[in-house]
Nucleic acid binder design. Structure first.
Lengths: 161, 161
DNA sequence: GCTCCCATACTCGGATAATAACTGTCCGAGTATGGAAGG
DNA sequence: CCTTCCATACTCGGACAGTTATTATCCGAGTATGGGAGC
């Protein structure tokens, strides 16, 4: 069970976009920040755009920008956008093949094991939804006061170094 | 991000073993219960045996049996045994490639994003560790009082049907 | 009848393929730019 | 000089390979069984 690295890239990119005010930043520019594969990061940002977290504009002067302030974006929003909404534990309803299996029953509702696993995943999601990206940004700024300016300078320069 | 189905198989098999008193059950028999691939289920049971949840005995009259009562087996034990102990979110430390990246720093400790993700996974693990298989067994027995006898009959018959 | 022995069948255990998911790359559709032509 | 137009360069967006992880299978090492030979 492993989460795709797109989640990590997306979260860092969203935080960086939070330090840019209004200007659109291209996927290539964001990828160069951490030396990531540009086209693949673009793929993840597309997912964020589909989820309504970012807005994308094509053409020159185009790129991605935040669709809403970081206060209104939770970790769960980003994780769901990139990884999908379905649970990690997917009940295959093997009880249906068991001795008293009933084809008419939806064992995803009745299976005790599935219920316990869903409860655990719910706790995970609850914790993710409790954290907004604005809180993460505040923590970073308190530890590295120069980060906003440095990021803004690096992402809004006219040309890549 | 998806969890292997071995977890589901392992949990169901452990519950079934909880209704057998002392007798060893072969992987083939347990697989036939839900019409699963026998050799692959055997692989998962091996993982449980390596983790000390089951004991395995080879040869005729061999098979798997619980190493300790269900009261002392948590969901987390089984998940960890089958899926491994490492976190789903693995911080690749992309900050190291960033503007002020320091090769000497372990960003798994300092990265705010990694900290938030680990907190969420901790909540998930905590929930899993809070549930023992004995509690699941009790819930199943309250809903299906005939389950223990039916399972025992099906798993301890001399020949497969 | 009882004991000992051995061939047998059965089990787990790890090594080996087939499949799906994730990672990475490429090219096309569409758009604002910037300069050139015309008034 | 100002306006209009068009060729250009640049962006996202989705379609296309490469690589890793997951799923599934197979065969060998080791053991209790159960029958047969010997006493």
């Amino acid at each position: 069970m492993q989460m795709g690295e797109g989640v990590e890239w997306a979260l860092h990119s969203c935080l960086n976009l939070g330090w840019i005010d209004g200007a659109a930043v291209t996927a290539t520019r964001l990828a160069a920040f951490y030396d990531l594969p540009p086209a693949y990061l673009n793929k993840q940002l597309q997912a964020l755009a589909r989820a309504g977290i970012l807005t994308s504009t094509p053409g020159p002067r185009g790129g991605f920008r935040l669709a809403r302030p970081l206060e209104e974006i939770t970790l769960l929003d980003v994780v769901t956008a990139v990884e999908g909404a379905e649970d990690a534990f997917r009940c295959k309803q093997i009880l249906r093949n068991g001795p008293d299996g009933d084809p008419a029953v939806d064992y995803r509702e009745t299976c005790v094991i599935n219920g316990a696993m869903r409860r655990a995943e719910l706790a995970w999601r609850r914790e993710l939804a409790a954290q907004t990206l604005a809180e993460l940004r505040a923590t970073v700024e308190s530890r590295h006061p120069g980060a906003p300016a440095a990021t803004r300078a690096r992402l809004t320069v006219n040309r890549l170094s």
